[in-house]
Design a protein around this nucleic acid. Structure first.
Length: 879
RNA sequence: GGGCGCGUAGCUCAGUUUGGUUAGAGCGCUACCUUGACACGGUAGAGGUCUGCGGUUCGAGUCCGCACGCGCCCACCA
């Protein structure tokens, strides 16, 4: 049989990453079987926006999703990870509009049709970009099921959902106050408004009361007084109650406004206790207006300039108008004071323009009805949020949810399926219609599109063909896990649960793992303006996809942000290199006759073999547990420690003498070769979900036969060996004790020492006897005496790993340093011993603590006492 | 105004749910080592008493309360 070539000396990820991705994809491993009798495991990708390139946050989510999917695939689940992208209405339109602006044109000049062509070109470009990046990271998505939110299939789902909700009375059209972006010229939902603290002002001015006197009001937006239609006071307020029912004169416009009493709006302790009321430009005032039947005067044009209702101020920008109004009030002698005022002002999430509360005709989703089942789904545990502290946030939002404005005055998106005729009728239909359902008159379709998040909310099932009863729906819905950032808990997660429960009767996923935010090494948010963004592709180029993935997974502690430091990534690239070199070393020593681990008679193997197999299996259990619980950090830590600490530092060192000189007692060379190869292969399987590329490359070189992507994930638990673990722990402690002394005393590492283990218990004596050659090698000894029952006179005596260790050092080599260390060690042990003895002397402790705790305390005390005695004797004998 | 999270080695973080060995890891640091897998390496080591105060307990980094500091989310005080 032909043996694979030796792994190259240099570890170069770029030499094999692309090749393996092709192998996987061609093998069909990304695509689930259908039908299948295996259990499904399904993840829907949070579709990235087609706004641009992927950022490091996407890399994190792709990594974690791929990790889980690969692990489940190896466990034998019929896995589907469905990829796709989101049209991201405003966000993408803003990008293309910026491009047009650079060309000196705009969408209106282009017209709807040509503008949309540009949008689709943009989408095609960035969609390809995104897919390529996902592949570079090793994402094992099923590309045969790739979706885009504007695909015909998903668009049908959107229309069906809209029409159904409309017929159920859960979608309605209404003339109400919404958040308006004067730059984007569209309505926004409450969530799309970002509140920022702004240093603004608060101005007082007086309204002259008809028949004499004045009433002073305060405002942070003076220009809105052009739309005031009342002044409100508290009905119980002695200062003003006599004025209720009278009118004030608008000083800048030719009209008068009523003074109304309103206990809801007015807080007598705030400001002057009198409030100007602008129903068309303030949510609280809007409600007040409804209570009192006040006129609603809109004073703004869509672009944020004052309209004809602003009289002399018409045409001014809202902020110029603010100054002009203040100036005019001053000229009328009505200004009554001003002060600095810091307050939260709403900004457009996408373009950062200050938004205005604006009266307009929009479509809304009645949210409270949909919220109830969504709340119940989480409360009952049908949907598990991880970490669970998100439940409180989720509940708080859904309990106070307001209706959701879903219409957008954009062109890029799902056109609202409502058709209007000249007679004022509305036809809502899944199919395009040309005539009114009520009167047969010609109709025109609503020019607006839907909020992007409306289609995203349907993603878990619109991607599977819903509302058609497709095979995919039956096989893969509801999905298993959603992995996404906490920042879209409301935008997306909550709404998916709402829509999923409403339309399918089932929550769309069983678990939601909410990741933190990737930050820079100084914990700052990454942003283009700060220049601290990290491009995932560049990182992949520099460190290899596996190191990037391992870093992100290792940093992903639950509920915390990820401070990403390139030094950390360098460390994990070193880990990949270490694994590579270890595998190459093992491969160099193979002879082609190795057995699989399952073919070995494990109980007859040597201690190091039984020990490393035990550690392997313990690690496998730990890894499974970690992935199960989304503890990616823990899983990575376990695997790192196993490979570097157990396998490389100890086992391979213990294998060297066998590789070089042939076997010792109970250590047949072929067994050792088989174990070394088998353990590296198993480690590759364990690591494969995190580091898919390097593990495939290594496994192939070790003759794994088939790609790891479909190999069974090691469950662990087969080879636990308590005895081997105890022996190895003692061996490691003794070896480290000797090495430590050599350093301490300042002997060159090459100096061989003589060691006596004078009081070994019989079991350890036998085990150490079999490993004497290995101990001599690891500790670099001239002689190891396991038979003597007393320590040679003048030897350094200490206790390590429960074993008395006597190291024979020439007297003149023992310096002050060594005595100091021994002295310090002695004091430390004595203090600890006193602490434990005091605890043991405490009746309460002995009586109430569990027997096991008491017993282990006694053991520790005995061990410490022995150690103290040994060190004391050493210090004494060496003067 | 509500709600949430965090404060553990120089840095970044585990550990706290179910209280009990001498509190861990990576990076960084110090010393020595170019030993045929690996200097993206090896060996050994220094370094925290767990933000502070009080309480519960035989026993607290771990539970409770208060304080201080940091961060985030939600919210129509004009």
């Amino acid at each position: 049989m032909s043996r694979p070539e030796l792994l190259p000396t240099r570890f170069d990820p770029t030499s094999f990453e692309g090749r393996w991705y092709e192998v996987w994809e061609r093998s069909g491993a990304f695509t689930p079987d259908l039908p299948s009798d295996r259990s499904p495991f399904v993840i829907m990708i949070p579709p990235p926006n087609v706004t641009g390139k992927l950022h490091i946050g996407h890399a994190l989510q792709f990594t974690l999703q791929d990790l889980v999917i690969r692990w489940r695939r190896m466990q034998g689940f019929n896995t589907l990870w469905l990829p796709g992208t989101d049209h991201a209405g405003i966000a993408t339109q803003v990008m293309v509009e910026r491009e047009l602006a650079k060309e000196g044109t705009n969408r209106h000049e282009l017209g709807r049709e040509r503008f949309l062509e540009r949008m689709w070109e943009w989408k095609a470009h960035y969609k390809d970009n995104i897919s390529a990046q996902a592949k570079a990271l090793g994402a094992s998505c099923d590309w045969t099921r790739e979706r885009f939110t504007l695909d015909p299939m998903l668009s049908r789902a959107v229309r069906h959902a809209f029409v159904t909700l409309f017929r159920q009375g859960l979608i309605y059209r209404s003339h109400r106050l919404i958040n308006w972006c004067p730059r984007c010229l569209t309505a926004l939902s409450d969530l799309e408004v970002v509140h920022k603290e702004i240093d603004g002002g608060m101005w007082d001015f007086a309204y002259p009361v008809e028949g004499g006197g004045e009433i002073v009001v305060s405002t942070s937006r003076p220009e809105t007084m052009l739309g005031d239609t009342a002044v409100a006071v508290h009905p119980e307020d002695e200062r003003y109650r006599h004025l209720i029912g009278r009118r004030v004169r608008h000083p800048l416009l030719d009209r008068t406004l009523p003074i109304v009493g309103d206990a809801v709006l007015v807080d007598t302790s705030f400001g002057t206790g009198a409030v100007k009321v602008t129903p068309a430009h303030d949510p609280a005032d809007f409600a007040t207006g409804e209570r009192h039947g006040l006129e609603r005067i809109n004073i703004l044009q869509p672009d944020g300039r004052i309209n004809e209702n602003g009289g002399p101020f018409a045409g001014l920008d809202r902020f110029e108008a603010r100054k002009a109004v203040l100036q005019a009030l001053a000229e009328h002698g009505l200004r009554r004071g001003e002060r600095a005022h810091r307050h939260a002002v709403g900004h457009c999430q996408r373009c950062d323009t200050i938004v205005e509360p604006y009266l307009s005709l929009q479509w809304f989703v009645k949210a409270d009805v949909l919220a109830k089942p969504a709340l119940e789904a989480v409360r009952s545990g049908a949907v598990e949020l991880i970490p669970d502290f998100w439940v409180a946030t989720y509940e708080n939002w859904l309990e106070n949810i307001l209706d959701w404005c879903i219409s957008r005055q954009l062109w890029w998106g799902h056109r609202i399926p409502a058709f209007y005729c000249a007679n004022g009728h509305t036809t809502v239909s899944e199919e395009d219609v040309t005539s009114c359902a009520e009167c047969g008159a010609a109709v025109t379709q609503d020019p607006d599109v839907l909020d992007t998040w409306f289609s995203s909310a349907l993603w878990p099932f619109s991607t599977l063909g819903w509302p058609a009863e497709t095979e995919d729906m039956r096989a893969f819905y509801p999905t298993s896990v959603l992995i996404t950032g906490f920042d879209i808990l409301f935008f997306w997660v909550a709404r998916m649960i709402m829509m999923g429960c409403h339309f399918t009767g089932k929550p769309p996923f069983a678990k939601v793992h909410l990741t933190g935010l990737v930050r820079d090494a100084q914990r700052q948010k990454m942003s283009k303006t700060k220049g601290n963004v990290m491009d995932p592709l560049e990182l992949v180029q520099q460190f290899g996809a596996d190191a990037v993935r391992f870093t992100l997974a290792a940093l992903a502690s639950p509920g915390r942000d990820l401070p990403l430091d390139v030094r950390r990534m360098e460390g994990y690239r070193a880990f990949a290199t270490k694994l590579w070199n270890a595998a190459r070393f093992v491969q160099m020593n193979l002879e082609g006759d190795e057995l699989a681990l399952d073919e070995l008679e494990v109980p007859r193997l040597g201690v190091p073999e039984r020990w490393i197999l035990g550690e392997l299996e313990r690690t496998a259990q730990a890894a499974n547990r970690a992935w199960e619980q989304f503890r990616f950090d823990e899983g990575c830590r376990e695997l790192y420690h196993f490979v570097w600490g157990d396998l490389c530092d100890w086992y391979l060192e213990l294998a060297k003498p066998v590789f070089q000189n042939g076997g010792g007692q109970r250590r047949e060379p072929r067994d050792v070769r088989s174990v070394a190869r088998g353990v590296v292969l198993e480690a590759c399987k364990l690591l494969h979900p995190v580091m898919p590329f390097i593990t495939e490359e290594i496994a192939a070189h070790l003759g794994a036969g088939a790609p790891l992507i479909r190999a069974p994930y090691p469950p662990g638990g087969r080879f636990a060996d308590e005895g081997a673990a105890r022996t190895m722990a003692a061996l490691q402690a003794v070896v480290q004790e000797v090495r430590s002394y050599r350093h301490l005393v300042g002997l060159p590492p090459a100096t061989q020492l003589e060691v006596v283990l004078p009081s070994l218990e019989s079991e350890l004596r036998r085990a150490f006897g079999e490993l004497a050659g290995e101990i001599v090698r690891l500790a670099n000894l001239s002689r190891l005496d396991l038979e003597a029952t007393v320590a040679p006179p003048g030897a350094i005596l200490d206790r390590a790993g429960g074993v008395d260790v006597a190291i024979v050092l020439p007297r003149d080599l023992v310096g002050a340093e060594e005595a100091t260390r021994l002295g310090a060690e002695l004091v430390k042990c004595q203090q600890e011993l006193v602490r434990i003895q005091e605890r043991l002397a405490d009746e309460g402790f002995v009586a109430r603590a569990p027997a096991q705790v008491v017993a282990s305390s006694r053991e520790t005390a005995a061990e410490l006492a022995r150690k103290v005695a040994l060190i004391a004797r050493t210090l004494e004998s060496r003067g």
